[in-house]
Amino acid sequence: MTSPAPLVLLDLDGTLTDSAPGITASVAHAYTSLGLPVPDAATLRSFVGPPITDSFPRHGVPAERVQEAIAAYRARFAESGMWENSVFDGVPEALRELRAAGCVLAVATSKPEVFARPITERFGLAALVDGVFGAPLDESSTKADVIAAALATLGRTAGDAPMVMVGDREHDVHGAAAHGIDCLGVSWGYAGPGELAAAGAVAVVDDVAKLADAVRAQLALPAR
């Protein structure tokens, strides 16, 4: 029986797209709407990647007002923030190269899937991958849960073929590790200094132009 194709799971924010402008503006809007001090730029940037339901209480929003903050954030994000975004230079070429090498590609993001799908469609990424998987709207799932859903929908089990996660934050590494999948970190996203290495990323890629080769090496595929 033929073995399944190698699988590459891809984070979205900070890995495929530079989504910080729309996310940070929407977060700032939420704090302003609640009459709370807007965090500094570095703190706002840390909201990119992890579930928003975790980030608001971590950064000063009282527990009883978290849902109010989420509603304000989502209103601003749905109106305009989701489109204040761009694909990192070189990403489409890397995806095309990996598909040509026989890899199955799937976006696995903590962003609600109702936002992830139109974003990947608008920016031309949906046509370059085999599936887009995200969190439910309440963001109640972890990255490990999103990966589990992606594997189930694709009819895959961890270990049935070479697999790797590609992401820019520690929760990408931890979510993949929950399934016994290694994570290849990327430095052009939103991780703090040393975050990816400390989380256990098998390597960190510093240049989008080197991404496809790094994935090939991790999956033990022939070099170009």
Rank of each mutant, 00 (worst) to 15 (best):
I23F: 04
R122S: 04
V208S: 12
A100V: 02
A198R: 05
H171D: 05
G185L: 06
A101P: 06
V186K: 08
V8M: 10
L154N: 15
L105K: 03
P222F: 06
T120I: 04
L154C: 14
A150C: 13
G131T: 04
L34S: 09
S141G: 04
A126T: 05
G131R: 08
E170I: 02
P21Q: 02
P57M: 03
A78C: 06
D40R: 15
G194Y: 01
A30W: 06
M165G: 13
F123G: 04
N85H: 03
A100P: 00
P193M: 05
W188L: 02
S19M: 12
T157R: 14
V215R: 12
Y73V: 01
T142F: 01
G167Q: 04
D130H: 09
E79S: 14
A5L: 08
T157M: 13
I52M: 14
V146S: 07
S26G: 09
K111F: 10
R76D: 09
L128W: 11
D54T: 08
S3A: 15
W83R: 14
I119Y: 03
P37C: 12
D130N: 01
E170H: 12
L105F: 14
P136F: 04
L95S: 14
L154D: 15
L219A: 11
I70N: 07
E64Q: 12
V186R: 08
A177F: 08
W188E: 08
E113N: 12
R45E: 14
D182V: 11
C103Y: 05
A108D: 13
G60C: 09
L196Q: 00
V129R: 10
A197T: 14
D182Q: 03
G22H: 09
V215F: 13
V48M: 06
Q67G: 01
D207A: 11
L36P: 08
L12D: 12
E97S: 15
V114S: 14
A199P: 03
C183Q: 05
H29I: 01
H171F: 12
F56R: 14
L154K: 12
G35K: 07
S46H: 13
V129F: 10
V61A: 00
L36A: 13
P37V: 10
L9Y: 01
P222R: 01
S33M: 05
R45G: 11
P21L: 07
V61C: 03
A152P: 05
P162F: 00
P51F: 08
A176P: 06
A71W: 11
V48Q: 07
I147K: 05
I23A: 07
R45Y: 10
A223I: 10
A126S: 14
G180K: 03
G194D: 01
A148N: 12
G90C: 00
M163F: 07
A41I: 08
A42W: 15
L9G: 06
G14F: 02
G124P: 07
N85L: 03
D18N: 03
A176H: 05
W83N: 11
V61L: 02
V91Q: 06
T153Y: 07
D207S: 10
A191D: 11
V202G: 00
D206Y: 10
V48D: 05
D168Q: 09
W83D: 11
R99L: 03
A78G: 11
R224P: 14
L98C: 01
A212S: 05
L211E: 08
A63N: 12
R65C: 09
V146K: 13
V166H: 06
E84W: 03
G200M: 02
E68P: 08
